[in-house]
Nucleic acid binder design. Structure first.
Lengths: 256, 256
DNA sequence: GCAAAAGTGTTCCGTTTACACCCATGT
DNA sequence: ACATGGGTGTAAACGGAACACTTTTGC
């Protein structure tokens, strides 16, 4: 895209370039902070800025007997998002959700590019020996959002329109959390009730009463209880009960 | 796209074709039915089938001094959806919301096409002198959804993957209605309480107690009351109070 | 030993639901 | 006069919010 090589794929009508970007949320249990995974851009445009991981959709194309371009193999946008994530950050993510498209003319200075944004939830391992992927960094979400909020009009923190995407992803995560126990996707298999509560508080930016929170969670019946050697209790999501809970439509009980 | 004219727009990497499709909901007050606007396709593929109104995104492109394609003028996906809607159905819609993308390989037999789907809410005028737009028809939503549900595995009712899109749009409409008084977008400025209730019932496929429904609506404070000459009362959405209601976060009161 | 975190029940209030009768209109 | 649709209030049940003290563990 950056060189002047002669283009070799033609279409009757011009087409926009298509990318996916992904907002990856992780909960850092030691710092009790909700974080996002950002990539420092190594090339122009926006070289040196942080950006969401993502990239162009992959299409295998050739020209047929009539000189028309025929696409032979390709991927869905979801597959594209997962592939780019794996390539750029090493993460293999199942919990990935579509957020929406961004397509304002001019959002990419190189060419007309529309992006389909996704958000994903991953477990950050308690001990991380630095970041696996080159240039990928876990950044506290509140830092990013505050920076964005306090920028003077017209200025941007992240590359492209990623400020807007990350802001929208946070709002969406908050909304979805009210209906689906998404939070468990951000935790290891077993966790304490207070960790779960801290996670909810980090996402929703609210504090809850310890007893009410625990009761609501336990009453829902989706948690299995595991005593530990100490007096503390650990919990684990019971997937069957969760599915049943979902079916019987009692999910609104989890709204705060 | 259907002829064998030599393609004249080239890119270094192949690109997918991009379309928008729109699920337009309207409430037929005389029949008390929720309807969707469908287009009968006049050309292949899927000639003669019903489909959602939509079409390709418009890009003005030319080749620059290096032989590279440069896009000069274009539209966002939202603008594309509105333009196609206007062109195909004559509707000028403000209440339009993004639903999501569909991009499974093979969904369009012609070429690799991804679509960004939208849904929109319009007022059907009580008296309609036939359909303005050629080939556009208002079809009861429940008929479409039932047909889709009862199809044998692997069969489709609408063109492309529009079965899935329309199903997703209905679910989304139901969900959004629980947080936002979307229903008002489907009604004329003034309406009776029972009309409003019938609309809610049509969308959510549930029946409500008349008194409880009216109380909840009135208690929210977003409706202005207008006595009529008869004993009946008409209502109208008060936009300022609605905005205030939204800000103060009491929207969950409207969940049923 | 002291500070910080985790465990435990009860009360009160607000919201939701269920329910029946009267009046006006039009046929 | 009869059927239909629209108007109106109350009581019971449920779910959500507020709240204090005791025990354990780690520093």
């Amino acid at each position: 895209m950056e060189n002047h090589e002669k283009p070799h794929f033609g279409y009757i009508y011009p087409r926009p370039a298509v990318t996916t970007d992904c907002v990856i949320f992780g909960f850092d249990m030691t710092e009790e902070l909700l974080k996002v995974l950002l990539i420092e851009r190594g090339i122009e445009p926006f070289k040196g800025r942080y950006a969401l991981p993502g990239g162009f959709i992959k299409i295998e194309a050739k020209t047929n007997e009539y000189g028309l371009v025929v696409e032979e193999r390709n991927e869905s946008l979801l597959e594209c998002a997962k592939r780019e994530l794996k390539e750029e950050t090493g993460f293999d993510v199942q919990n990935i959700y579509e957020l929406g498209t961004w397509s304002t003319p001019g959002r990419d200075p190189r060419c007309i590019t529309i992006t389909d944004a996704y958000y994903a939830l991953v477990t950050i391992q308690p001990v991380r020996g630095g970041d696996d992927a080159a240039d990928a960094k876990w950044v506290p979400l509140y830092q990013v959002l505050n920076t964005i909020k306090n920028l003077p009009e017209g200025m941007r923190f992240l590359a492209f329109d990623h400020d807007e995407i990350i802001t929208a992803a946070h709002i969406r995560l908050q909304q979805q959390l009210c209906f689906e126990p998404l939070a468990f996707k951000l935790l290891p298999k077993r966790f304490s009730m207070s960790t779960l509560q801290k996670l909810y508080e980090a996402i929703l930016e609210k504090n809850f009463d310890r007893r009410n929170f625990a009761r609501k969670m336990l009453d829902s019946g989706i948690l299995d209880v595991f005593p530990t050697e100490s007096r503390n209790i650990n919990y684990q999501l019971n997937l069957e009960k969760y599915e049943e809970f979902k079916r019987t439509g009692r999910l609104s009980n989890l709204i705060f």
